[in-house]
Nucleic acid binder design. Sequence first.
DNA 1: AACGATATGGAGTTGCGGTTCCGTTTGTCA
DNA 2: TGACAAACGGAACCGCAACTCCATATCGTT
Lengths: 189, 189
Amino acid sequence: MTEERPLRADARRNREAILKAARHIFAKHGSQAQIDDVAKRAKVGVGTVYRHFPTKEALFEALARDKFERLAGLADTAMGIEDPWEGIVFFLKEAAALQAADRTLSEVFRDHGDFMVDTAQSCGLSELGDRLVQRAQDAGVLRDDIRGTDLGLISCSLAGVPPVWSWERMLDIALDGLRPADRLTDLAG
Amino acid sequence: MTEERPLRADARRNREAILKAARHIFAKHGSQAQIDDVAKRAKVGVGTVYRHFPTKEALFEALARDKFERLAGLADTAMGIEDPWEGIVFFLKEAAALQAADRTLSEVFRDHGDFMVDTAQSCGLSELGDRLVQRAQDAGVLRDDIRGTDLGLISCSLAGVPPVWSWERMLDIALDGLRPADRLTDLAG
DNA sequence: AACGATATGGAGTTGCGGTTCCGTTTGTCA
DNA sequence: TGACAAACGGAACCGCAACTCCATATCGTT
């Protein structure tokens, strides 16, 4: 059915240019970015953008998938960190930084819950989250009543913090809510 | 300058109807609600809506102000609760419930940081927050390094939790991050 | 080189939704 | 109850941005 002919060289090149441009524009303006701007930045006609992505929606979705893969990458490096607690901190911090720099991600979190859950699943992020949590619990540095999805929960909630305030501070509060009842962060200063 | 003639009776009536309708429509669709829908629901022509609110933006803002006053009201009742910790829990819970039921509020949180801070100030919400926090700290049931604005911080972050997950759970985590290091909530179950 | 198949650019189309305008209605006041 | 200002309704207007279309250009294959 869906014959997968290889793209012509110029087409492949343009596709990449479009994605690159779109990443930049959508990061700044979220889903209300304008296709014309993407085309202009990619040095390509609007028609070309539509040849590759039949809909603004489709382009947005492709970008979102990208981001989730990057998140999965982060989770993976997090698993590589020896200290399990630091692994979790690393992941949450990087994930939050990613969102803060990119409206695309936080918009997906807010407005496309189902897509988010599906994609997290299909790119292995969910499972990595579970393992990250499990490992920390085994080491006794994370409360036992936390689940893998709570990492997503926290990420989303950090995405809700507007620029006037700092998600870093909220993260500190949330992290203290995750620890077993021993040592807490000092938020003063 | 701005002569304040009293509104004619029908005008006053319509204004209320518009606000009421707008509250309903904006709660569901956020700032991308449509003026025509508001007019229809208020049983009024579009022109009338524009007579009372020169701009969609202006209507949105009026609604937002409303919400902040309601939040201030909540903070006030919270101060009336004997147990200072329960006061804080009450406030955060009610505030979150309000957002969950009303896209207007969470949109202001997300996209209009400055307006939010100003309005919180001008309707006394900021000060009430400070007092709520202070009182709890005096009673020793709240970490000393928390500030009044952290209530806003937490509210915003709860607004970021999409419907697929539950803000209640995130609130529990955050609350545990607020407590002095003694008794924590049991998130299991 | 030459010929299809594939891909491109960008002017034009379309639809949507905020805003305006004005002929009509309603309230108020004498 | 008559007259005037205030307010109304909703068709029409207008700008904006997603999307289409097709004459033209480019690629890859023989």
